[in-house]
Nucleic acid binder design. Structure first.
Lengths: 134, 134
DNA sequence: CGGTATCCTGGCGGATACTG
DNA sequence: CAGTATCCGCCAGGATACCG
């Protein structure tokens, strides 16, 4: 099996199969906390590592590091290092490429908001879809 | 753990936490073959089950059924049953809600195409990002 | 402070065979 | 034809502890 969509898409591209445009885009933010990270960075602000750990509910540092590194590898964000001696300090912000992804997230945000409103108003969804066997 | 983003988002919404708009949207097409399915349906066409099995590379019927059913539960697609006697026949097409998702996929497609072009032109990505440790 | 290193687990998705 | 049923392997992501 391969559930790693990033690796999957990379392999396709490297082997000359470029028929995966949507999948490439999806793979940019399909990690569990990536949308959250990108959303926080959307204004162009720099955010420090420990800020993320405080903002994102229940992320371990390992997982956070991992998500950030993947975003860096994909040229979506970039890291700045402020370390002095033993005290490390790092901040992250969007690259130009990453910034170009924000409109998509905004559309997704809008779509989701509207859909949530529908779901709150129309209780049919609750019974018909949230409990399909009723 | 819970990697099931659909369930995750549902739980949030049902428990009154509506702060997951983007995640809800993402959860609509984060199954492995869902984007492919939606893309094929984007014109409003009806597509039969076995057409999908031929179009999508290497899907088992179980997985395909599963992806289709999740999309139905989420009111993204709807099923029509043509069965006569023992011979089953089913087709699937977008709902209005599903159709409203297509512009997002289109944006993702466009973004991915542009990004792929960049990657083909700029070999730096190959060394710097596809092999981060070089 | 900002990471690594280890170990572990739930569940997605694949393979295969059976059914109406 | 269009599914179920069953079994299984893999890996993202969580917990925890250590490091410079």
């Amino acid at each position: 099996m391969e559930t790693d969509i990033r690796q999957d898409v990379r392999n396709k591209i490297q082997s000359g199969n470029f028929d995966c445009a949507k999948e490439l885009t999806l793979s940019m933010f399909s990690g569990k906390h990536k949308m959250y990270i990108l959303w926080e960075l959307r204004n162009g602000d720099e955010i420090h590592f420990n800020q993320f750990t405080r903002i994102i509910p229940n992320v371990s540092r390992k997982v956070l590091t991992n998500q950030l590194n993947e975003l860096i590898q994909d040229s979506i964000i970039e890291k700045r290092d402020y370390s002095e001696g033993k005290v490390k300090r790092a901040s992250y912000k969007l690259t130009a490429i990453g910034a170009s992804l924000i409109p998509i997230l905004t559309m997704m945000y809008d779509w989701g908001e509207k859909r949530i409103d529908q779901l709150r108003i129309d209780p049919v969804y609750q019974t018909k879809n949230f409990h399909p066997d009723v």
